[in-house]
Design a protein around this nucleic acid. Structure first.
Lengths: 199, 199
DNA sequence: GTCTATACGAAGATAGAC
DNA sequence: GTCTATCTTCGTATAGAC
């Protein structure tokens, strides 16, 4: 996120109570999504669970999609601050994140749903968010790969940027495959990718 | 699909005209999705474009999701019969499929949308379809990997089943990343994955 | 068997009162 | 800043004409 002001994501609530209320709504909404994923989560049901009208939600978020994106963003940020940032290798970091994700199927479901809808034509906000996110995550992974290449931990006959894209894609895709069929062993399969990268 | 009768996918239309009409609907629907993806595609809009009532569609397909799955299945089968089945290496086959897909963004969008909704709780049909599909595709790729390992074309220090899952995941994920940001160079990036697999 | 007509409830979004 | 009321569209279900 390039903009420093968190409230700028919605349309209003830029001051005092508005910001607090917004955070409160997001906190409550996260719980809803963690247990329900993205299916039983209409604006009206979320509003009902939280205890406001659905129109009130739309006061803080321009559309259902913006609310969903904000919820995902908020949940992701919260997890990053909860886990003490171990900062391991490029693949190891992805493995760690993926195994964490898979414990909260609702979030993976939400993520997948949002990525899918961001591909559709009407989704300016979602498209921008995920385009930026993919770029940032790929960049981070590529940077770490370069470090590891310099340290002799990763083979140097492949382009770090391309490998980074593959790692991110494989991680996303495997989480989906795992949700549909847990027999694929997410961690060990991502481990095989790490084997491929060793010099 | 384990059942040999194609008409069994819907609920009726098992005979003569019904089958033909069903195919006709699918052919027309494919065009709709190829240009619109999955967003402007409500049951009613599809019906309107095809020239039937939305209730008529539900005569051939139990639900909107079943129609969408059938459309995707039909489009995929059609493409397989159109391209003369080159049957190359494991990764090469995925590269070929992915580069074909990316020429029809609507289908990738449809695929992603369906996979996402198959994760949700209400989706029995979609979930079964994609679980089977992933299993079949992974199995095919793994078989080819084993052949290539025997031929000395692929390194043998990795499990073919795990690599197959990674190839499928990476292919799916990269198509999405490419749609959001074409600068990642889909073919060359998947080529890097091929490099990793060489002995 | 095939399809039209119609109805129902839920959804996202908007307008305007308070 | 938040609500009620309302609009439109959606998926789905049913009745019954042909």
């Amino acid at each position: 996120m390039t903009d420093g002001d968190p409230a700028v994501i919605g349309r209003r609530g830029s001051y005092a109570k508005g910001v607090a209320r917004r955070q409160e709504i997001l906190d409550r909404a996260i719980e809803v999504f963690q247990e329900r994923g993205a299916d039983g989560t209409s604006l009206r049901r979320i509003a009902e669970t939280i205890g406001v009208s659905h129109a009130a939600l739309l006061h803080y978020f321009d559309s259902r999609e913006q609310l969903l994106v904000a919820v995902y963003e908020h949940a992701e940020a919260k997890r990053h601050s909860d886990s003490p940032r171990s900062d391991p290798g490029a693949v190891e970091g992805m493995v760690e994140a993926a195994t964490q994700n898979v414990k909260v199927p609702g979030l993976v479901e939400l993520y997948t749903t949002l990525v899918a809808s961001s591909l559709e034509s009407g989704s300016e906000h979602g498209r921008a968010f995920f385009t930026e996110r993919f770029e940032r995550v790929r960049g981070d992974v590529a940077d770490r790969l370069r470090e590891e290449q310099a340290e002799g931990k990763v083979r140097t006959d492949v382009d770090p940027d391309q490998i980074a894209a593959i790692i991110v894609a494989a991680s996303d895709g495997l989480q989906i495959q795992w949700l549909l069929d847990p027999s694929i062993e997410l961690e060990r399969t991502l481990g095989a990718l790490a084997t491929l990268l060793r010099p």
